[in-house]
Design a protein around this nucleic acid. Structure first.
Ligand code: SF4
Ligand code: SF4
Lengths: 152, 152
DNA sequence: TGAATCTCGGACAGAAACGGTCGTATACTT
DNA sequence: AAGTATACGACCGTTTCTGTCCGAGATTCA
């Protein structure tokens, strides 16, 4: 529950990897998969989907591969997750989906929808760049880099 | 992914229901289950687990049932979720668990751990009471009731 | 031209998590 | 004693997740 899919996880890793190698023209799925221990074929399909949603640009053929379509600073974790795992809900009922059987009688779906938005906001405020800058966490609680409004 | 379990969902509904009926000495699992359309047997087990973790007090026998162990204001959504679905991770690796195969080579687990904490913080800041006060959302974006620090 | 490399896309299978049911034992009230 | 309600574990069908396989198209290079 409330757990990130491994695909999304892999997707974030790959994007971060690409962000860290801006010089290279393109990196193949296999390159990235080998860099970590990710199953190559699986990563391939993930990158394909990221391409289809416009987060990556692909290039077939020899020395082909993928590159970021935008600056790493302009790609949010939310977009990645959304691209890979589809629309983001905390519950089974949220807007867009058909909802669970007891959507009418349920009295907490509305407050939960706000929680959903809040969490989505957190994810949206995180960019690939943020992941790439692995500031050595020297234990010191740094300045908060952002504040997320929690309306409920 | 990142979706609340239905069990947790039911648990929150039940807790909220109990919070809304502070006068009654105890409400049986069946009462709550009927109030919404929740499968009674399933809700029963959920409430049992909440009892075992100390969020509820149970009372067997006729006219028995459950009651909140603490004030609704003192019970966070996080506790409920944690009690029902176990420890809260966003990823498969987080502290406590054995982690996934590529925990060593993974470079994003540390930033993700912070995201994890952030979201957990959001959940912790929400009490059952907050759910019960279903302030008619008149569209007007009320004052933010809290801010969550987003450190990465 | 043709071989090598790489993306694309769907099908598919094994594994795990989820949602829900059942049966039985136990505790409390009247 | 009878009735009501919690307690607990086993079980099972469904869905979701993870990962693999395979065939088809694109591009580069010799
Ligand atoms: S309707 Fe209520 S119960 Fe059904 S999914 Fe939405 S929140 Fe959970
Ligand atoms: S280690 Fe990296 S890949 Fe494995 S679960 Fe944690 S974050 Fe995801």
């Amino acid at each position: 529950m409330l757990k990130l899919t491994k695909k999304a996880d892999y997707g974030l890793m790959a994007l971060k990897y690409l962000a860290e190698h801006p010089e290279t023209p393109a990196l193949s799925a296999k390159d990235v998969a080998d860099a970590y221990g990710i199953p190559a074929q699986l990563l391939a399909k993930i990158l394909q989907r990221l391409t289809k949603t416009g987060l990556l640009r692909s290039h077939a053929g020899m020395n082909g591969g993928y590159e970021l379509a935008r600056d790493a600073r302009q790609i949010s974790a939310y977009e990645v997750i959304h691209a890979i795992d589809g629309p983001f809900f905390i519950t089974s009922c949220t807007k867009g989906a058909k909802g669970c059987d007891l959507t009418p009688s349920c009295t907490i779906k509305e407050p939960l929808a706000r929680v959903n938005d809040t969490i989505a906001g957190v994810l949206k405020s995180i960019s690939i760049q943020d992941l790439a800058e692995h500031v050595q966490p020297s234990g010191r609680p740094r300045e908060a880099q952002g504040l997320v409004a929690l309306t409920l």
